Each structure stands twice: as structure tokens, then as C-alpha cells.
Amino acid sequence: MKISKANAPHYIWADQCDGWHLVQQPELSVIHERMPPHTAEVRHYHEQARQLFFVLTGTAELEVDGELHTLGPQEGCEVPPGVPHQMKNVSSGDVEFLVVSHPQTRGDRVEAPPLAEPKRD
């Protein structure tokens, strides 16, 4: 079946960010997400899931285990299981990106304490 943002299951997170489930299987999750300017997810980690964050449009900051990565269009970063991370949009425009998780993250998320100052890459 053909999938797109137009027909994928949609949800809202952090009050104003969008997610569309492109693939939602126990062994694999692919989500297209949109973060408006100056939004961030809560810093967390996954006990089992390995993730890939891949930016489609805009510029995002992804903190991974204390190191801050600036990701522009067509750039991504892999996050292994057990590693704290936080996606942020500190820009003045929307950021759209893919989050690919193996296995899916349902019931696998653990909140992590915030960092005072991450290292920049």
C-alpha cells in the first residue's frame, strides 16, 4: 500500500509537534515528524531500540550522550540503545525529519536528566 503524510496515522506530541506513522510494526517503526521553531523533545533513551534521525528539511540539533550534532537537510545521526538523546529545533523555521527505530519504541522510553551544557561536534 502506498503511504504518505496524507494517509498515514497522525499524532501530536509536545503540544505542537506532528508525527505520521509511515511504518508501525513491532520490529520496525518509521515516523515522519515536524517540529515548529523553538521546540524540543524531552531528553530520554530507549532500552532496546536503535534509532536513526534523518533531517529532510530545516536544521535541527540532536544531543547524543552529551555531544551536540547540528543536522541539516539530508543529514542524520544514529542513536544506539541505552544512549540518552534529545532532538531540538532552535531555528526560526520548521524542521521535518524521519525517525527510524528497530524495534519500535512503544513501552521502551526512559526519561533522562537534562544536561547543563552539551559538547558541540
Rank of each mutant, 00 (worst) to 15 (best):
K2W: 05
I3T: 06
I3G: 03
S4E: 06
K5P: 06
A8N: 00
I12Y: 04
W13S: 06
W13L: 08
A14K: 10
D18E: 13
D18Y: 04
G19C: 09
G19H: 09
G19S: 08
H21Y: 04
H21R: 07
L22R: 00
L22A: 01
L22I: 06
V23D: 00
V23Y: 00
P26R: 02
E27C: 06
E27T: 09
L28M: 10
S29A: 12
S29Q: 08
S29D: 07
S29I: 03
H32P: 04
M35K: 03
M35C: 09
P36H: 02
P37M: 11
H38T: 11
H38L: 13
T39F: 03
A40Q: 14
A40F: 07
R43S: 09
R43L: 10
H44E: 13
Y45F: 14
Y45D: 06
Y45K: 03
H46D: 01
Q48C: 04
Q48V: 02
A49W: 05
R50K: 14
Q51T: 12
Q51G: 13
L52G: 14
L52W: 15
F54W: 13
F54N: 02
F54M: 05
V55C: 07
V55M: 01
L56F: 04
T57Q: 09
G58F: 02
E61D: 15
E61A: 14
L62K: 10
L62V: 15
V64T: 08
V64P: 02
D65T: 05
G66M: 11
G66F: 13
E67M: 03
L68A: 11
L68K: 10
T70I: 09
G72D: 08
G76V: 03
G76H: 09
E78G: 13
V79E: 05
P80F: 09
P81Q: 03
H85W: 12
M87D: 06
V90W: 15
S92D: 14
S92K: 14
G93E: 13
D94P: 05
V95H: 00
V95I: 06
E96D: 09
E96T: 01
L98E: 06
S101Y: 00
H102F: 12
P103Y: 04
P103V: 03
G107E: 03
G107I: 06
R109D: 13
R109H: 12
V110L: 15
V110M: 15
A112P: 12
A112I: 12
P113V: 10
P113N: 14
P113A: 15
L115P: 10
E117G: 01
P118Y: 07
R120W: 05
D121L: 05
